[in-house]
Nucleic acid binder design. Structure first.
Ligand code: ZN
Ligand code: ZN
Ligand code: ZN
Ligand code: ZN
Lengths: 158, 158
DNA sequence: AAACGAAATGTTATATTATAACGTTTTCAC
DNA sequence: GTGAAAACGTTATAATATAACATTTCGTTT
């Protein structure tokens, strides 16, 4: 993760994402409180996997007096609602690219720049499920992370 | 990872694993020093993913005066040689089940007991590779981790 | 053998990520 | 309104990992 390209989502897309989150939580009765919504907004806006302390810093920069548990609790909630995924290999959190869909996600994570690409996937999940059944493992629908190099980083990062 | 079942590999299997590591490193010219070999032995013996500090404690219990870098450096080396895999989702390290083979591994990790099962896989890797190519990602042959529940933990862990 | 440079290890300190524990406030059903 | 549950604030600490630099070991060259 050397040359981390800064990339922000367009405001319109952020608003759309948040509106969908509002609708989803309203439908399920989950409470997307202002605090949680603020954290989600920060995750969505960054448009890439972000660390918890990075989010915490942004919260503080906006005048919020918070401690780590604040952010981690919000992230836990957002993960439960399927609005955010944790990328274990990067210790980072990324907004789900298609929340609400009971999806089987495949997430490519670029080890150069830290960006991630989430795909709706059936083929990979099917082959994993088949292999899992063969050895008796039960696998829920959590996203599968795959490390790699993104197209931009394959060229000399322009 | 509540009821972590303790499980040790049989001494004969450990010796076999170490012998293979010796042969592999001899062939490539990599220096499997006593320290590195000792760390590998501890990883192999435990027969499941183990944390770096867990290994450090075991080193110390055997009279070795070491600090975290000691273990982390050895683990780095062992990973480079393909003798050990890091399980990102568990912050743990596990001995490769078939070192030397240029394998495409799929690792099922039980979130209940922490055990892991490494499989030689072609179907899953093939579908991942196809998907990666479609979006321009380049994916090296690192193991893919899949969270799940192992057969033993599905029953009431006997 | 002596000298040299590179690799490995020792050592200390610190960075990074995440959670425990407990008190206070807010929310919601009754 | 009242009580219970959920959410949030706050402090401290756990767990994981690395930076930085000194020392030792090792293989090679002279
Ligand atoms: Zn998703
Ligand atoms: Zn990239
Ligand atoms: Zn392996
Ligand atoms: Zn299990």
């Amino acid at each position: 993760m050397s040359g981390l390209r800064i990339k922000y989502l367009k405001p319109a897309l952020v608003a759309e994402h948040l509106a969908r989150a509002d609708a989803l939580c309203a439908a399920t009765g989950a409470r997307l409180t202002p605090l949680r919504r603020r954290v989600l907004e920060l995750v969505v806006r960054s448009g890439r996997p972000v660390g918890a302390y990075e989010l915490l810093d942004q919260m503080r920069a906006c005048g919020h007096k918070g401690a780590p548990p604040t952010v981690y609790r919000a992230l836990d909630f957002l993960q439960q609602q399927g609005l955010v995924h944790r990328i274990a290999m990067a210790n980072a959190y990324v907004a789900c690219s298609h929340p609400g869909c009971d999806h089987h996600a495949l997430i490519f994570v670029c080890t150069e720049c830290g960006n991630a690409l989430e795909l709706e996937e059936t083929q990979v999940k099917a082959s994993v499920a088949a292999r899992a059944e063969a050895v008796g493992f039960r696998v829920p629908g959590q996203p599968i992370e795959v490390a790699g190099t993104c197209p931009l980083c394959q060229e000399g990062r322009p």
